Computed example of a mutant assay.
Amino acid sequence: MNSQKDLEKSLRDISKKTSLIKRDLWRYSQLRQKGAPYLLRTVLESMERGLNSISNDFNQFQVALSQILENGKVTLKQKEEEFFFEFVKDLDDLFKEKGLTLSGQLPNLKVGFYHLKVNWEAKRVQIFFGPELVKSVPLDPEGICQAVVDFSTSMKKGLIQPEEFMPLLYKGYERALTTCGKEDGERLPIMEVLKEIVFQIQDEKFLSDPSKGNFKPLSRIQFAIQLYQLRREQILRWKEKDLHLVVAPFDATFKRQMFLWVPDNERGEGTRFSHILFK
């Protein structure tokens, strides 16, 4: 019994024998209350022969099917490895064309600021900026690459040059000191400073008509990239005061409004910060 056809034939034989046993069971139920003993004996002997025959057939079937399953698992593993290799290779080639480097191991990959979490069962890839889920896309290398590039482009659009952003950051810190009732040099929640910066970058058009169409956004992800650029360019001092970012304590990392993930590099690594100060 080495082929699928043999297994299918064996199943048909087992099914036929099961039907005969079912027939004998019905006859037995009729004869056990009233019926000639020799007829009851005939039915019981038929059931016993059927049981022995079907047990032998089923044991052979079970052994053969188990072997097919074992061989199938080996084949599946080989095909999965081939598929994973081709998937990562295609993705790597596509990112290289965009000037980006793919790293990591499945199901967790990294490219630029982003972490890609591959879910084979759902046939989806989740794109993260630190802990922030920014997008979920189908399991298609071209679509994944395009989604990362498009989102990255949208986040970089409207960013301020580091040397121009530093005075905005300092002014935002000063304004937040007032609103939070703090003294100069004290640390402030990093998201409070972001609020003040967002207010600063609005132009007269928004101030005279604060509608959605006139609003200039600065998302938390964009703010994180701006801070990364300051650290990368070593622009960490303004008005004779040094910029300090305070690493978030463990309990602060559970609440999104209490921390900001800032990239350490463009390999998907970063740090959660909870407070900011100039001193």
Score class of each variant (00 low, 15 high):
A252Y: 07
Q257W: 10
R187Y: 09
L133G: 08
L11E: 09
K157L: 10
Q105G: 01
V43R: 03
A36H: 06
K156T: 07
E70G: 08
L230R: 09
S208T: 12
D24Y: 13
L227E: 02
L260K: 03
R256P: 00
S274R: 08
K135Y: 11
V74N: 03
L218T: 05
L188A: 04
S15L: 09
F83E: 10
K171M: 12
K279Q: 11
K182A: 15
R124S: 04
L11Y: 06
K79Q: 13
M47D: 03
I225C: 03
L236S: 07
L65F: 13
S103V: 00
S274C: 05
S46M: 03
V148N: 05
L25Q: 08
K195F: 03
L40Y: 01
G181N: 05
T101A: 10
I127M: 08
T179N: 10
D6Q: 12
L168N: 07
P141Q: 07
F278E: 10
F128C: 04
S19P: 01
F215A: 07
Y170M: 11
L106S: 01
N265I: 06
G112Y: 01
E269N: 13
F58H: 06
I221D: 04
Y170W: 14
C180K: 15
D93F: 07
D251F: 13
L7H: 02
L51A: 15
F199K: 08
G143R: 04
D184K: 15
M258C: 12
N119T: 02
S10T: 14
K212P: 00
Q200D: 14
E8V: 05
Q229W: 04
S274F: 00
K239V: 02
L116S: 05
S274V: 01
K96D: 03
L116M: 05
V148Y: 02
W26A: 15
V247W: 05
K156M: 14
K77D: 15
L39H: 03
Q60D: 12
E70C: 00
K241H: 09
Q78C: 00
S66N: 15
W26E: 14
K9Y: 11
V198H: 00
A252P: 00
L91Y: 01
Q105R: 13
F259I: 04
K205H: 07
T153K: 15
T101F: 03
L230H: 04
K96P: 00
K157H: 11
P217H: 10
E132G: 03
T179V: 12
D92S: 13
E269H: 13
S152M: 08
G185Q: 05
R272T: 00
I235P: 06
I68P: 00
I197E: 04
L227K: 04
L159R: 14
G130I: 06
A147W: 01
K255V: 05
A147D: 04
D6P: 02
P167R: 13
D264N: 15
L20P: 00
P189N: 14
K34R: 15
E266N: 02
F254D: 09
